[in-house]
């Protein structure tokens, strides 16, 4: 007899392995792993939905450019402005480009870009798939002999995994540009001197670790959005919940991953 889901004929109460909430928590983790497993199985088996992957890359990457540009640029300016007084106290304002480049390339660009993408792209995916689920569009795809998982889920996860690293590199460049403008205005530093100073402290490991982080974050955003949307329930309320959960779960996991990857990279460094 299965203890967790069996209904007692006498008490009509469900029995659980530990408790209802803990069982549900571990059950949902198991389901997420099955979901990820199915993604890898479908992603590497033909037919491939190339056109839809390109379409989703356009939605995730190109359509995020204005927001990412603005936030990246402002982050560069603000971080430079806020760091100057502390460095000036020690007469070290010439180190500003180095400090800003380390902060942006190692941490700010991946984190800021991914959090913005989690909000913009993750909620979009969650709401779109959730809406398709509750209006039976996903069922309609299935009964018309089309694999909805491959068409909707695989394409979106591939798009976020590919596009977030590109957006992170772009944010890094825009952030550095914002920083240069501020440094140039205040310290009259030339562009060549700024670049030389900025990149003197950046190693390949910094850039590679940022790209690796971005790949992980992009995959997380895609999985969180698709999972929440694909299994949305209870009509329009469920769509809202799917969009909300996609953002919250993705942001939470991004911070957890950041912490783990930083420990790992520091151990290598």
């Amino acid at each position: 007899m299965k203890p967790n889901a069996e209904i007692s004929s006498n008490s009509q109460k469900k029995r659980f392995l530990i408790s209802k909430n803990i069982d549900a928590f571990f059950g949902s983790i198991y389901e997420v792993f099955l979901f990820i497993g199915l993604f890898f199985k479908e992603a590497f088996s033909p037919p491939f939905e190339w056109r839809e992957i390109i379409n989703q890359c356009y939605n995730v990457g190109y359509k995020s450019l204005p927001l990412v540009s603005l936030t990246g640029f402002i982050t560069g300016i603000v971080f430079t402005k806020q760091s100057r007084p502390s460095l000036s106290t020690f007469g070290a304002s010439s180190w500003l480009p180095s400090l800003v480049s380390i902060a942006i390339i190692r941490a700010l660009a991946p984190l800021v870009t991914s959090l913005i993408a989690a909000g913009k792209v993750g909620s979009n995916i969650g709401a779109e798939l959730g809406s398709m689920k509750v209006t039976e569009q996903i069922d309609a795809m299935e009964v018309s002999a089309t694999n909805p998982f491959k068409f909707l889920v695989v394409t979106r996860i591939i798009a976020t995994t590919l596009m977030i690293p590109i957006l992170v590199l772009y944010t890094g460049l825009v952030g550095m540009l914002g920083s240069f403008i501020n440094v140039h205005q205040n310290e009259q530093t030339s562009f060549a001197a700024f670049i030389k100073n900025a990149f003197s402290t950046i190693s390949f490991l910094d850039i590679n670790s940022s790209i690796f982080k971005a790949i992980c974050y992009g995959f997380t955003i895609g999985v969180a959005g698709c999972y929440q949307g694909y299994f949305a329930q209870n009509g329009t309320q469920g769509v809202g919940k799917a969009a909300n959960s996609a953002v919250v779960v993705a942001m939470f996991l991004i911070f957890v991953e950041e912490m783990i990857i930083v420990q790992f990279v520091n151990a290598i460094r």
Binding site: Q137, D139, A140, S144, T146
Partner: peptide, 24 residues
């Protein structure tokens, strides 16, 4: 299968809705 609420793909035109199962 004809669904109760039609379940048309609302991001696609009628042409794309009809082409979808065929081209796949």
């Amino acid at each position: 299968f004809s669904f109760q609420n039609s379940a048309l793909y609302d991001s696609m035109t009628v042409r794309e809705n009809l082409a979808f199962p065929l081209v796949r």
